[in-house]
Design a protein around this nucleic acid. Structure first.
Lengths: 210, 210
DNA sequence: TAGATTGTTAATCGATTAACAATC
DNA sequence: TAGATTGTTAATCGATTAACAATC
């Protein structure tokens, strides 16, 4: 029951369960089962029940899970009931796409500051936000009490940005830069690298398809 | 030695090794060791040697691995020595960011066609490509002999697009839409969902940081 | 040669799943 | 009640790692 004992692989699946429940709720469904969730995700029902059992008992024998209730429980476990403020570094094509993607908002995240070092971009308005000078990173992050950041700068600048973020007090980083960041162990990090995904699929393609 | 027996989790790590070797080569390094690769990636040297041993013997006792040689071997294993043609569906903010990202090119992929259903976008020039009408999806994919696609359309349209892609002969899909696609088992799929990554990090953040 | 590092085996560790009592 | 589904235990399965001979 100590959170430290819960395998990370279990934590990584919880957002998938939450996302599935959100979709079901959006379609007006009120009750589901571990089997139904599993079918949607390609995961066994046993695994879903086992994963949830790390945190408590959320279902009823014979009937399954109340979707609204389980959603709220998962939101609380993942700490996404409240909205988190997020800083975005990089206002290039990728940064702008991140900024305009509505999924963050729905997932419990609000990008409240965007930074770039390019003078051409600084001061430019993107949606509700004005691009800030990266020189103000520390100041703004501290002022707003932000502890999550998204890195959307070129690989060559990512480590430097990460260092500045850690220095400003950031505790979780989502990085789109295709290289591993050197970070203190108390800072969470996840990477998004589409090329890695593609390259592990081409392994399975038959040679005649090239 | 039968490819079918190699665990998928091993295949998923190979692109990381390749990426690391690429970075080393770019810095002019010519030789490395399993320990050095492991340190960069946060993976044990034993695991790297074990993973590579599924495919052959690529190193020399006492000296390690020739970077150029191991790179080329990994490229061949992953089938990314040749350039793959890729179709991109969706020319919104995300699609444009994907199109302008140079990492695909470097990873062995060339986006050779981009589609959208929005008449406002069809015909527009993005970099070297003109946005095509999604009605021409089947025709163009067959003509060009494309077998990999990237989905960058809203979640509500992703399944429909996926069905059309499968119908056109696509064998591998990278989807940015935050939901699981229903696909034939002979079609590879990988998902990119940044919110999932963020939500599994917030679990570990201490509540006072909210 | 001595030191370094590989490739591989066997042991360990951890995750998944089968089975089932409990109960709605 | 009978059927369905949960939560949990124990068994199985698979991945990681420790140890080491081989050898550059």
């Amino acid at each position: 029951m100590n959170p430290l004992e819960i395998p990370e692989i279990v934590i990584r699946r919880l957002p998938l369960y939450l996302r599935t429940l959100n979709l079901m709720a959006a379609q007006g469904q009120t009750v589901t089962s571990s089997q139904e969730i599993g079918e949607r995700l390609g995961i066994s029902s046993t695994q879903i029940r086992k994963d949830l059992s790390y945190f408590g008992e959320f279902g009823k024998q014979g009937t399954g899970y109340n979707i609204e209730y389980l959603r709220e429980q998962l939101r609380q476990i993942l700490q996404v009931s409240q909205r988190w403020k997020v800083a975005l570094i990089g206002a290039g094509d990728l940064g702008r796409a991140v900024l305009r993607y509505s999924g963050f908002e729905e997932g419990g995240f609000e990008i409240t500051a965007v930074f770039d070092k390019d003078e051409q971009k600084i001061g430019r308005q993107i949606g509700k936000l004005k691009v800030l000078d990266i020189a103000k990173l520390h100041e703004v992050i501290r002022e707003q009490g932000i502890c999550i950041a998204i890195i959307a700068v070129p690989a060559s600048e990512a480590q430097e940005v990460a260092d500045a973020l850690v220095n400003a007090g950031i505790k979780a980083i989502l990085s789109y830069a295709p290289l591993p960041l050197r970070l203190p162990s108390n800072v969470q990090v996840h990477y998004i690298d589409p090329v890695i995904g593609l390259q592990s699929m081409t392994y399975y393609l038959s040679p005649e398809q090239i």
